[in-house]
């Protein structure tokens, strides 16, 4: 079957890609664009390791067709750091040791970014509600929650 020509915006850059109709957005990112930050965990929408922001909302990229990325605006983990340094969330995850194996981390960072984009001053409960369903099998969640709260404070002070 012919490949589809898809025009999309990824991390602020206009991108043209050829996708197989049955390719998921996750496969398109990882195999087509070599953006391997988003991870395949469960591949059925449960674990959140493949989370990306699509048109302002977090989605499981394993449940989106690559073909649906046409005209979309997508942010992946590769879009968080800038040449000036890490995103405050990434820095806070490092400082709080909020990761062990790291497979879930891109999903947590993207979900946390989307939380802070819409709610810059979340309570602990709001952080836990928002991140429920991003699964970590190593560390437990306390350090992750603390890191998000620290990053929120840091970003507020930085503004």
């Amino acid at each position: 079957m012919a490949k589809l020509h898809v025009e999309t915006t990824i991390n602020g850059e206009s991108t043209e890609i050829l996708v197989d109709p049955q390719q998921s957005l996750l496969e398109t990112l990882r195999d087509g664009l070599m953006l391997t930050g988003a991870k395949e965990g469960c591949n059925d929408g449960n674990c959140g390791a493949c989370t990306v922001i699509m048109d302002g909302r977090t989605v499981n990229s394993c449940l989106v067709l690559g073909a649906e990325a046409q005209d979309a605006d997508i942010t992946t983990i590769e879009g968080l750091a800038t040449p000036r340094g890490l995103h405050p969330l990434q820095q806070a995850f490092l400082e709080n040791a909020a990761l062990q194996c790291g497979i879930c981390t891109p999903g947590f960072l993207i979900s946390s970014k989307s939380l802070l984009d819409s709610n810059p001053n979340p309570s602990e409960e709001e952080v836990r509600f928002w991140l429920a369903g991003n699964l970590c099998r190593c560390t437990g969640y306390d350090k992750i929650v603390r890191a998000v709260l620290d990053a929120a404070k840091e970003m507020k002070a930085g503004n």
């Binding site: 929408g45 909302r57 977090t58 989605v59 499981n60 989106v64 979900s111 369903g133 991003n134």
Partner: peptide
């Protein structure tokens, strides 16, 4: 229902 990501979709 499920998670925010699922509810977003």
């Amino acid at each position: 229902v499920a998670t925010i990501r699922i509810r977003n979709m």
